[in-house]
Design a protein around this nucleic acid. Structure first.
Lengths: 205, 205
DNA sequence: TCTAAAAATTGACGGGCCGTCATTCTTGTG
DNA sequence: CACAAGAATGACGGCCCGTCAATTTTTAGA
């Protein structure tokens, strides 16, 4: 028992289906990274697999949908970390620090861990996928919780959640541009800024 | 003499050239807004003018280049406001407040001033055009100035500039989602956050 | 004013990608 | 083993892309 293929998808049908879907996502990851999202075509993606062009459309309706699936995927892997951070946090500062650290580490891990200079100059596409929105909700929840428990001032939670996300995105990008990226430094900076603004941001050097 | 067409572009050649370029940009603005950037095609754009398809390529190499021109355009209109804010500012807080206010007002003005619900759910494209980068430089300059003059703590100016921009983008988007958008509230929030973090963000209501 | 060179416009064309669909192959079931 | 349901295949019509030879418009020199 507990031998190979005993777990998860039992039928061959389901197994190949999952495999094909995974193959497409994997190829898409490569192609998007290589050609850039805009320039990539559905054909480029399926050429990266051993499937026929028509097969693509059994799994996704368009290149956009593949992108969303990839984004959802990433978000789905990241969200639990956020929730864990909220559950375990001993203070609001702790929550912020853990969350930012997790995000920056996530960024680093996802983007080839290293090396790839991240072809700047290429348009960036930001889709607000359901999971992305869910992350916003999670962040907002965390903030409202903190506010309700009195450990954070009663500010506009919507603005604040969005601001925190904006900081994460841009400071994260800035961090990734440096060599080597310093997750701790970025997290410290973000936490300090959110908590105390300029007064609290870590001094340089 | 000094009759019509005495000013600016003298030759008919140059005049129509400028007019055509303008016509293309105008049509592109409409088309992008209507169909969304991704879905728009070069053909859609020229159909919005009385030019032939081939003519488009005398002015731009691609839809992307049109987008960049539009972005540059906007940035070029906005940048002077930032510079003015820096020149006239009586304090760092004043500089921040003026800059943020100008940006949020700019956002509001550019996006149909009102009404348009800004079709969320449409992928957003962010190109780092030269002018956009210039704005980052301007912001960074303003911050480094403030730091050098001792009116702002010696923090990581690169991180800070990026964080300020991230805040501007996300809080700006949040503001635009509300009805009616409140420029003052958004600016106050952003300034408070940057200066003093949660401690300084305006309390709700 | 007339005319030749330069500049700009035009739209048709070959090539590629899109999304569909009838056909073929594969898997599950009795 | 036979048969139905499900999935993969690749050819096809339609659209968009970027180019380019032909044509029209503008400029400048005689």
């Amino acid at each position: 028992m507990s031998d190979t293929a005993a777990i998860e998808p039992v039928g061959k049908r389901e197994r190949t289906k999952a495999a094909n879907r995974e193959a497409i996502l994997l190829a898409a990851r490569r192609v998007f990274a290589q050609l850039g999202y805009e320039a990539s075509t559905v054909r480029d993606i399926i050429r990266g697999t051993d499937l026929a062009s028509g097969t693509f459309y059994n799994y996704f309706r368009s290149k956009e949908e593949v992108f969303e699936a990839l984004a959802d995927d990433g978000a789905a892997r990241f969200k639990p970390q956020l929730q864990a951070a909220r559950a375990r946090a001993s203070s609001f500062e702790d929550y912020l620090a853990t969350a930012y650290h997790a995000y920056f580490q996530f960024l680093l891990d996802e983007n080839g861990g290293e090396g790839k200079p991240i072809d700047e100059r290429q348009p960036h596409v930001r889709t607000d996928t359901p999971e992305m929105i869910a992350i916003y909700e999670e962040v907002r929840q965390g903030l409202e919780d903190a506010i309700a428990r009195g450990v954070a001032p009663r500010v506009d939670a919507d603005f604040l959640a969005n601001a925190c996300i904006g900081i994460a995105q841009e400071v994260g990008r800035a961090m990734m541009r440096r060599t080597p990226p310093d997750v701790d430094a970025a997290a410290q900076f973000a936490v300090g800024l959110v908590l105390h603004g300029l007064d609290g941001a870590p001094r340089k050097r």
